[in-house]
Design a protein around this nucleic acid. Structure first.
Lengths: 206, 206
DNA sequence: TAATATATGTACAGAACGGTCTATATTACT
DNA sequence: AGTAATATAGACCGTTCTGTACATATATTA
């Protein structure tokens, strides 16, 4: 039965509830009830709750990175402009307008390391891998943008991302993304990239 | 009994275990056993686990801010140099050399908002207040340093702090603090503050 | 010494936890 | 149509969870 859905729906429900309430606070029963899936169906597909957590995070990684990249690409600017646009995309996320209107509750991977602090734990490692993949994408943009040191620039942008995520999460700061964007602009100039407002305006005018 | 106050010891044990394993994953019994305190002693002092969580976070807030400020002051430089020194202090924290050698497991307040995402929840509000108090201190330094816009500079430094904390936590990046410090230097220059290496060297030579 | 807090161990309540088992229903394939 | 595989609901298991009850013990202070 239901080849096209039950497992998927289960994982997506898990993504939502783990993201909102955390991993330890969210019980199996809650997920099953919300998803409308039988108990044994879960244990047919996953050995344990931990495996469901891993599956949910893998799904979230895929979902987030696809959304993140494609939304940046949609802005359609130069690589340098895309680096800056990444902060606008974060701002969309913080506002709750992305991801089916679900309220922003921070980055699930940062949150995961909060609950699984051991670096060796599969959940923690998955979180680290997620950040690595995002960093890789930023490195590509930094390189294309002609940065003197693409690794260093990508790393800095990533750090600004994390800072804005946490600032929005903890302090509810609406402008966390825009503030971080201004810092990014300064950093990019330091890396020999032209990010003058004029170049952006002219690009938008094209 | 208990001149070294059982209550104090209980709260400090709670700080340690909540910080390491998270709030929901840490049971009352674990804390009681580790602290060597009887069950009823806990419930004499606190109405519930939630109240113990709040007490632990209040203690952590006090402990951390005192350590943070005093360690910065010890560096003894100008306000501008202290803003930069804050990143060295974070680096000490990340390395695990601070706080009785307990391994770094991220910021307990960021972690708290991960487990209590509702902005109205007392735990979340306490976390926000902690960040506010740190920001206030940074504002003081930024102002003393002669920043053109002390609020904006303090906010930026705070964001860089958060970014380095999360980068160290998730990716185990040893150099997160030093990297953030370099960005901070750039930002401070942008705010009209002299942070040339020469001024630091000469200050150190005095 | 007597009075007063405070801390103790243990047992227990009631709910929720992760995970298993079974018996039934539904599907896909021959 | 018949068969084999799989999804279903829900009872059930042992454990752990927070929080309570009670009777005892210890330490300060008057």
């Amino acid at each position: 039965m239901a080849r096209p859905s039950k497992k998927e729906h289960l994982v997506e429900t898990a993504v939502k509830l783990f993201g909102r309430d955390g991993f330890h606070a969210t019980g199996i029963d809650t997920i099953l009830k919300e998803a409308g899936v039988a108990r044994m169906t879960l244990y047919k597909h996953f050995r344990s709750k931990d495996e469901l957590i891993l599956a949910a995070l893998r799904r979230r990684d895929e979902q987030f990175r696809i959304w993140f990249k494609s939304t940046i690409e949609k802005s359609g600017g130069s690589p340098a402009e895309r680096l800056l646009a990444s902060f606008d995309v974060l701002g969309e996320w913080f506002s709750g307008r992305a991801f089916a209107g679900l309220p922003f509750t921070g980055c699930s991977f940062i949150n995961a390391t909060a609950e699984f602090s051991e670096a060796n734990h599969p959940v923690h490692q998955l979180a680290a891998e997620h950040k690595r993949l995002i960093l890789e994408y930023l490195r590509l943009l930094a390189s294309s943008a002609g940065a003197r040191d693409p690794d260093a620039l990508a790393w800095s942008i990533s750090l600004l991302h994390e800072g804005s995520i946490v600032t929005a999460q903890v302090s509810g700061d609406i402008h966390a993304a825009q503030g971080a964007k201004e810092i990014a602009r300064t950093v990019m100039i330091q890396h020999g990239i032209d990010v003058s407002v004029e170049s952006q305006v002219s690009a938008a005018a094209c």
